[in-house]
Design a protein around this nucleic acid. Structure first.
Length: 550
RNA sequence: GACGCCGUAGCGUAGCGGCCGAACGUGCCGGGCUUUCAUCCCGGAGAUCGCGGAUUCGAAUCCCGUCGGCGUCACCA
């Protein structure tokens, strides 16, 4: 059941980390190839030299690998379709351009951006849609030369034929774009670089891409690509446009959501006088004008993503996870994230939901991809992550927890593997990794970091004339004599005291828990004490007992 | 505005002409287990399958219309 002629690709632009939407596109291409024994190709679309971000390519590769997605050909592994970086293919795009020009399928144009905008506005006011008016006669190479000499921008436009374009989409069915809907779009920019359309067609042909699975936002680009393929005389791959992915409120899931969240946080903080605009400038290193514009207007570009991230950290605002890396840093398991992402727009059928990557490969088919736009439900993801975390073996969790701890500078990451494994197991039932820190983190911090929660002290220790404190004293005496500092034995010690005093487990365990953790939450009491060790346990109890007078 | 896509409980999906008086998961509400939190277990509410019409003995499922949502209309990809 393998078809070696199947070749699909994922072609991200190096503008930052991998967006979850992009991750899903990558995943579907990957699944399709693996299912049918095809080749999965990774290509970096870096033709927009202005927007390329240094290091982004590596980030995307890392994000994909973290998810468990690998590829047969790509910029890092090479392959017969090389190069896999569009920036290394300039001569091929130029060859395509020259062929198109020579065959009368393309022509030069010289308008400036301002002129084009003016034409658009006018068209908007008069009739509605703007279509680039094809000049007659078409400019010649000599005209282009002259324009260049005059300092005008020279682009190459495709001479879109006046014919209906029908494509058969593997998901959507037949989609037809009527003749005249498309205008003569730019295929080579003034700086000599190809636009996305030309580059995609040239590269897909060279790499012999047989299937293009991409998000539906590209649907209207496809006729352009098909026309270009015909003009160039290259094969047309099969297309499958994936349903879009939205936020739970129906808005588009974009990096702007991060700006939005932080902007709101900044506004609130300023209103509450806990932050000033000057301080924002300090934190971000941006000038006052930029900050002002960023806050007031929707000019996200005034601040870079790095600046926004620092700002969020500084003022304590949570940003929504948008990129795969955001989820990694937030403490999700890759197994859960890929599983969740796969189910947006695809289903294995029946009531099956939880699948490993291998099971997804086994079950994957284009027919089972839906047409309905999906929503990214974070609560469902959370539940799914919990599910995966409760079933995955500890050693697997350990690897990812250490990764997460390193990214977050978490002190638990410094524990030895055995201890950390025990901590993870003691906290089973957690949704995401930070929950582990919430529950057990304090046990591995310096004793001085223990802050006693007023409510907990009142409820578990001070109430009833300090009944809890009294119990605590007995506990201290009992524990001081314990030699076998093990979970079982310590649990027994606590239970014995419960029996001896005729009280309930909560009357004994809770005061102890609050004494050593400062809060009424920790792993099982025996386990909690083992993590702490005898000395620290007794020390913390003593320290807590000092609260009695206060 | 033009063109295109979509429309099943809050959300994600299953079902794709009779098994549907619509299923599963999540979320919500209630109960139980438990030394805490979380987990776990049990129960419940929640959908006239966007709306209208047509075809049919029979429609969530096929057809037409309508409304709504979204996407694309860049020298970004």
């Amino acid at each position: 059941m393998s078809d070696s002629t199947i070749r699909a690709r994922f072609a991200p632009s190096p503008t930052g980390h991998l967006h979850v939407g992009g991750a899903r596109s990558a995943l579907f291409n990957f699944l399709y190839c693996r299912r049918h024994g095809g080749k999965f190709v990774l290509r970096i679309e870096d033709t927009d030299i202005e927007r390329n971000i240094a290091g982004a390519e590596q980030k995307i590769l890392d994000d994909l690998r973290w998810l468990g997605i690998d590829w047969d050909e790509g910029p890092d592994v090479g392959g017969p379709g090389a190069p896999y970086m569009q920036s290394e293919c300039l001569d091929q795009y130029h060859a395509a351009r020259d062929k198109l020009l020579a065959d009368g399928h393309a022509y030069y144009a010289f308008e400036t951006a301002d002129e084009l905008n003016a034409m658009r506005e006018q068209a908007q006011a008069e009739s509605g849609g703007f279509k680039y008016p094809r000049p007659d006669p078409l400019p010649t190479a000599a005209d282009a030369e002259k324009a260049r000499a005059e300092g005008r921008p020279v682009v190459v436009r495709f001479k879109t034929p006046a014919e209906d374009v029908s494509i058969h989409d593997e998901i959507l069915g037949d989609v037809t774009l009527a003749a005249g809907e498309l205008d003569d779009f730019v295929i080579v920019k003034a700086n000599g670089w190809p636009t996305y359309h030309l580059a995609v067609v040239v590269d897909d042909a060279r790499m012999q891409v047989s299937h293009v699975l991409r998000a539906q936002e590209h649907l209207m680009n496809t006729p352009k690509h098909v026309l270009l393929q015909r003009a160039l005389g290259v094969a047309m791959p099969k297309y499958a446009h994936l349903p879009l992915v939205f936020n739970i409120d129906g808005s588009k899931m974009s990096k702007r959501d991060k700006h939005k969240a932080v902007r709101q946080g900044v506004k609130d903080a300023i209103k509450q006088n806990t932050l000033t605009k000057e301080r924002v400038c300090e934190i971000t290193g941006a000038d006052a004008k930029a900050v002002e514009r960023w806050i007031k207007k929707k000019a996200d570009t005034e601040l870079s993503m790095e600046q926004v991230v620092t700002l969020a950290g500084e003022i304590g605002v949570d940003m929504p996870e948008i990129d795969v890396f955001d989820f990694r840093r937030s403490g999700y398991m890759p197994e859960a994230l890929v599983n969740f992402i796969a189910l947006i727009g695809w289903s294995p059928g029946g009531d099956r939901e939880k699948l490993t990557l291998d099971e997804m490969i086994e079950a994957f088919s284009l027919e089972r991809i839906g047409k309905t736009a999906g929503r990214f439900d974070r609560e469902k993801l959370l539940a799914m992550n919990l599910d995966w975390c409760s079933e995955l073996p500890t050693d697997r969790l350990l690897v990812q927890f250490k990764d997460w701890a390193a990214l977050n500078d978490c002190h638990l990451g410094k524990l030895d593997d055995d201890t950390l494994s025990a901590v993870i197991d003691a906290c089973r039932g957690f949704k995401i990794f930070p929950d582990i820190v919430t529950k057990a983190g304090i046990l591995f911090e310096p004793d001085e970091n223990v802050v006693y929660d007023d409510k907990a002290v009142k409820k578990n220790l001070a109430k009833n004339d300090g009944a809890g404190f009294a119990t605590l004293e007995k506990l201290r005496d009992a524990l001081a004599g314990v030699d076998d500092w093990s979970v079982d034995h310590l649990d027994a010690v606590v239970k014995d005291l419960v029996k001896a005093t005729g009280s309930k487990m909560g009357d004994v365990a809770q005061p102890l828990r609050v004494a050593v953790a400062g809060r009424p939450v920790s792993p099982g009491i025996g386990q909690t004490l083992v993590f702490l060790g005898k000395d620290k346990t007794l020390y913390r109890i003593g320290r807590c007992l000092e609260l009695r007078g206060a």
